[in-house]
Amino acid sequence: MYLASPSVVAASAVAGMIALPQQIPESPAVFEATIPTGGGTTSRGSSAVAEKPSKIRGRVWVVRQDNIDTDMIYHNRYLTVTDIAEMGQYTLDNLAGWEDFAKRAKPGDIVVTGKNFGAGSSRQQAVDCFESLGIGLIIAESFGAIYERNAINKGFPIMTANLLATGLKDGDHIEADLATGEVATPEGLVKGTPFSEVQMNIYKKGGLLNT
């Protein structure tokens, strides 16, 4: 950062480069694009993705509540965090009764909840924080529209099924078949919504942007 007087700063803003008020050029300096247009993959290319299981088994956390919004999942005070590894610790810390979820959850655990999970903002972190903790799957009766897309596009497995109607409790083990939508619970088989073709493709390749 350079320091200068108000008139020199104003002149530089107009010129797009350091300039004096009495010598502002006719046309301003502009940033020139350096990467070819057309979008798509530029340099990184695709990264190898381990084979994704089509059946996910794990221990459940039953969050018996509807309309859990993104501020409860991942509060806006953490929105500047960009490193997924840092996000897990804040998961659900603004949801009454679940403040210590991040400490109690283990990789591979499954979260089961009610209607409209992930209502509210568009923050991707509300998905990423679960990925950060290693959560294997989220099953809700329904998801907030943006949240659902965010999870699908991330390649993070979420499934729609009504498990709260069963007697499922914390610590039970279930197995979900992403292709058929069937969830095996200690209470019996529950039929949920199978992954769509789009969701399955994105899930298998490890995310929408992984080309």
């Binding site: 350079y2 700063v9 104003a10 480069m17 350091i18 300039a19 940033f31």
Partner: peptide, 10 residues
């Protein structure tokens, strides 16, 4: 003079 800038603050 001529050093490219991206932003300015007054």
């Amino acid at each position: 003079l001529g050093t490219k800038i991206g932003s300015a603050f007054i």
